[in-house]
Amino acid sequence: MSKFFSVRHRLVSFSTPIRSVWAMLALLAVLLTIILLSLCLGEEFIALPQVLQTLLGHADQASQFVVETLRLPRILMAAMVGAALASSGLVLQSMIRNPLASPDIIGITGGASAAAVCFLSFFATAMGMVWLPLFAIVGALLAALLIYVLAWNSGVTPMRLVLVGIGISSAMGAVTTFVIAASPLSTSITAYIWLTGSVYGASWVEVKALLPWLLISWPLAFYLARRVNTQELGDQLATGLGISVQRLRLALLFLSVIMAAPAIAYAGAVGFVGLIAPHIARRLVARSFALLLPTSALVGACLVMLADLFGRLLFQPLDIPAGVFVSAIGAPFFIYLLYRQRF
């Protein structure tokens, strides 16, 4: 079949629809364009040739500082955060077999937020801000664990997982609101900005801290890809085809947490990406987890980078958190997609 790009070797064999390969390459081009655009644009405009020269290491110190110290880590951070949240959303939607799942809906983001806000109110002054990500990650893991344990009833069904998750999410929301309300104003403001989600002031340190998480979780997700496809047919069929559904479900929940939690920890509770990026990806490539994963990640990366770019540019000198524009760009586009699907 000419519609497939197939590789058959003694060691490796796979087959991929060609249309999907083109879609991913196009997305990659969009991603690179947004990166270059984001490097050029800002309070100070730097022309593309100069940006490229800077990246190659020969340019004047001023633009070197703007490009390499201010803009590049921030852009990469936005890309990684978007990719991570989108991947996490895809993992959850596949596991639950419901397109309405995402880390912010089933309580993972809620757990991270509650932990982060508690940290900001009670520990930040004593311990210093460097500990915030660790608290957020632990909070997300604890929330996920709680969801899993409460949903357990000689096995976990997707529906119970979602319902318990929504419950935990709103409970965590209550904790978050209470702590913010009870805190002094300065802490509340910091907490509020963190909750919206922002990559403002991201540095190479944070980029390097977030990257390893992706390098661990991504290969794991690819490793599970075929199992994920099969379990989407339903528990009985998946078991009949030789999958241990319960073990896979636990692995996927854990995977979604280690994808989303670090991103949330470093960039705050950026919402919506996890929900819509997989949807957009499904419009672009064939319905296979191994294709949807990179596609969702690319879409998520583009979304958060664009959101951050708009946040930086539109209301200068104000720097609006990326989280605001993720919803502002994402929501209309999402509704447009759903609207178009009807015909």
Binding site: S6, R8, L11, V12, S13, F14, Y223, R226, L241
Partner: peptide
């Protein structure tokens, strides 16, 4: 699925 493994995903 039951006849495949991670590397030999489509023979």
């Amino acid at each position: 699925y039951p006849h495949q493994n991670w590397l030999q995903s489509w023979t």
